[in-house]
Design a protein around this nucleic acid. Structure first.
Lengths: 223, 223
DNA sequence: GGCGTGTTTTAGCCATGACTAACTTGGATT
DNA sequence: AATCCAAGTTAGTCATGGCTAAAACACGCC
């Protein structure tokens, strides 16, 4: 194995995760974007990107931003695997709710040994997705490509199955849970208001209108 | 609550645990004893005891050693509760072996939230002892007084039930597991060799001779 | 093509928690 | 009581990962 995430500090692991998330969202990883995501000042982010570059985990272009190297990506994926396996476990085996589980896993992910990771993986039957619908990298850190279709890409009258919801904001997750908009649930597309207006969906919890923006952040597939 | 272990650093929590262990063993908590247990140089231990004293967690007498204050004890017990609950959980629910579980819990204990602690406690049915037989402090951090009787305090011909074994050394734990000397198992006292010689016990794994010293570190009660 | 604005970086600082080298101190030995 | 040794402490250093204030840069606008 080229990188052992084990000997990366907690801070380094957290930055890798943040950079990976920004890259996955297709955004340029600027100092300010990284600083905002980490809840840290811009100079702190600059300092850390320098460190990451020295460790060979990112490619750094001053004033331009960073991008993960092969090793950096592996490190991020290892942390992500820990995080998502733990989320799956905490929900399935300990009954944590969708909105609590992210912050809990954020702390535990750094304390998980490879042995325990493996036991959890077996115990859960090698799950492929976490409770928010995000793919869990497998033991070789390959990550399944998710369908890019969102609720916005359906038509009125279509029936869809929610496959993925945003994972960070607990408030939002509680709201979505109330609406029955969680991975696995069925949704009927009722209407799209004009001029980018709200999308109305029917779930087993009834009819609900959500912003087009939010609808665009909820992935789904056809039944 | 007077102390929130949550906002103590990991290092502080680890030192509290070590000091608590030394005090429980009836030893004076000297700088060198603490340094040895923490795997750290003496000056590092001195520096930390000063910090702990400033935080009101220990009473410090220079050149004399330290002792936990009320708050320090509560902090230690909170960490100990996390540790032992996790050990119980990892063995019962994820099938970790007796010798692996200590080091695993050592890392996880600092990442466990109070909410998750409570869930685990419920899930396990409010266990009172960890897999090594050490008592788990309850939610009010009260800790059950364990019987002080060891295998050495029995007589030839007695039958005993192992209640507690040393928890740190994985090698030793693997050995004891092979011998069937784990909490809950029955033991017949076969012989005590003279002049402090070995103790022979019979378990379901057969007859085995162990040093008197080791026998003295294994707690047991009569059937 | 210069100028200003907002982003990024540099400079200098702090806390935590470790280290080695050198100095004190307490207590036993004589 | 003077001495000596081991244990404890002080002094000075380092790495990590934060911070603020100030300088440097990129880029759009005139």
């Amino acid at each position: 194995m080229s990188t052992q995430a084990a000997d990366l500090t907690v801070a380094v692991q957290d930055y890798l995760k943040a950079i990976y998330a920004l890259e996955s969202a297709g955004e340029r990883v600027t100092t300010s974007a990284l600083a905002a995501r980490m809840g840290v000042s811009a100079p702190s982010a600059t300092a850390m990107t320098k460190r990451l570059a020295e460790l060979g985990l990112v490619e750094r272009a001053p004033y331009r931003g960073v991008s993960l190297t092969e090793n950096g990506q592996l490190g991020a994926l290892e942390v992500l695997r820990h995080h998502r396996l733990l989320e799956r476990y905490l929900v399935d085996r300990l009954g944590l709710s969708l909105d609590q589980v992210h912050v809990e896993a954020d702390r535990l992910e750094h304390a998980l040994s490879e042995e325990l990771e493996a036991k959890i993986d077996v115990e859960l039957g090698f799950p492929t997705h976490d409770p928010h619908g995000d793919p869990i990298p497998d033991r070789e850190l390959r990550v399944a490509e998710g369908g890019r279709r969102t609720l916005c890409d359906f038509e009125v009258g279509d029936r869809a199955i929610v496959s993925r919801v945003p994972d960070v904001d607990p408030e939002l997750l509680r709201y979505l849970s109330e609406l029955g908009l969680v991975p696995g649930s069925e949704v009927d597309l009722v209407s799209f208001a004009p001029f980018g207006g709200p999308v109305t969906v029917q779930t087993k919890a009834g009819d609900h209108a959500i912003s087009r923006d939010l609808a665009g952040r909820i992935s789904a597939s056809s039944t």
